[in-house]
């Protein structure tokens, strides 16, 4: 696991990071933190992570599984997958617009 210096800045919503992480299968809290750092470079802290987990659980976008030795895995629900599928194209549009504009901005 690459140990990073403090994040250059968090642009990503923790909920989106969690949904994206769970899209590859159920994970418990620490596994999510490692996975999210791996694919996004953002290191979520436990307070932020669990705040988002609680919100997602209330919305029914993720569901808790049976805890194994205190560590409880979470699984992406069908509604959660649907929400992720709807949000990602928007993000992609934002990212490509930003990139395009950066490339074409007259300096």
């Amino acid at each position: 696991m690459p140990r990073r210096r403090p994040d250059p800045g968090r642009f990503s919503d923790p909920s989106l990071l969690i949904l994206s992480s769970l899209a590859s299968g159920p994970k418990h809290g620490y596994a999510m933190i490692l996975d999210i750092e791996e694919f996004s470079g953002t290191r979520l802290e436990p307070g932020t992570l669990y705040g988002a987990i609680a919100r997602l659980e209330r919305r029914g976008w993720i569901a808790p599984l049976q805890a194994q030795d205190r560590r409880r895995p979470y699984v992406l629900t069908a509604a959660g997958a649907q929400a992720l599928r709807e949000q990602l194209p928007t993000l992609q549009r934002i990212a490509s617009t930003g990139l395009r504009r950066l490339g074409t901005t007259p300096s």
Partner: peptide, 22 residues
């Protein structure tokens, strides 16, 4: 589960501030 996570997590000052805010 949060306490299990803290056993494995690299706890820094920012972790404490984040827990307080949480």
């Amino acid at each position: 589960e949060m306490s299990a996570l803290l056993d494995e997590h690299h706890v820094r000052l920012v972790t404490l501030a984040d827990l307080l805010a949480g």
